[in-house]
Amino acid sequence: MPTVHDLADHLAGPLDRARYHAEGDPAGVWLASDREVRRLGLRLEPGRPPYDWAAAFDAVLLHRPFGLWPARWPDGVGVLAAHRALDDRFSTGLNPDLATALGLVADDEPLRRDGNAIGFVGRLTEAGRLDPLVDRVAAEFGGTDEALGDGPGSTDAIALVGAMTAELVEAAAERGAGLYVTGQIRGPAREAVHRCGVRALAVGQERAEAWGLRHLGRLIEARWPDVEVVEAGSSGRVA
């Protein structure tokens, strides 16, 4: 069975660990342990001590580990962390795996903000009615927070973007996207949604982050089928 170090090495490529470690952001082992991992918990953040919930696992994968008190953490339970790497690579932004899950083929040229790639327009094999596409996105994330704009009756392109500005909405619409999917709908972009005739869909920041954690969990399960990956939030979900 793997240790937390083996899990981190397996995720090093997908998370681009070397880059984020060089920038001082966690993308690997946060608390080391030599215990074999048979049960891995997924959770957005550790919460406040006591960490009784963590004792049920051999290791935990966290998105935001920064408030964790090591002195109060259960002995021997390793911690993996993926912070900006998850936000950048496995959320609503530049995320090819999400595109695949939604049946999209991403355009070669990404959507950019300040020169940095932050999302893309993905193409469907054929145009579909907008409402079923919204339902497909909601099912993938386990719900949504907000929808804005009527949008076209059908579309063959969806924008998946890690931020929302008027300029990004306009750029997505110019490429034919009828649906703009992001974490949160931002005020200055609301007018652009109506002006461009698209529909914007906010899945919610925590749902987007939870999707990324679940996906990393699936990568671990694919490599080590005997590792049980469990959503470790207080409600039985990642959050």
Rank of each mutant, 00 (worst) to 15 (best):
W53C: 10
V37I: 07
V4N: 03
A22G: 14
E209M: 12
V227L: 13
W224L: 12
G233V: 09
D88L: 09
A56Y: 00
L40S: 03
A222L: 12
R195T: 14
D34T: 14
E206S: 14
R64S: 14
A157N: 09
G183D: 07
R39P: 01
V137P: 02
R175A: 12
D226W: 08
D150V: 12
A189H: 11
T182F: 01
G153N: 11
E167S: 15
A163V: 07
R112N: 11
V60N: 01
D58V: 05
L133H: 03
V77D: 04
E167T: 12
G24T: 10
V137N: 04
F57V: 05
A22C: 07
W211Y: 14
E140Y: 00
A172E: 08
S154Y: 00
L124N: 07
E221G: 07
R218S: 14
W69D: 14
L68T: 05
E146L: 13
R123E: 13
A117Q: 06
G142C: 13
T165G: 14
R35E: 10
T182L: 04
R72G: 11
A172P: 04
A147P: 01
G217S: 06
P26F: 00
S33D: 07
L111E: 08
Y51P: 01
D25L: 09
D108Q: 11
V4R: 01
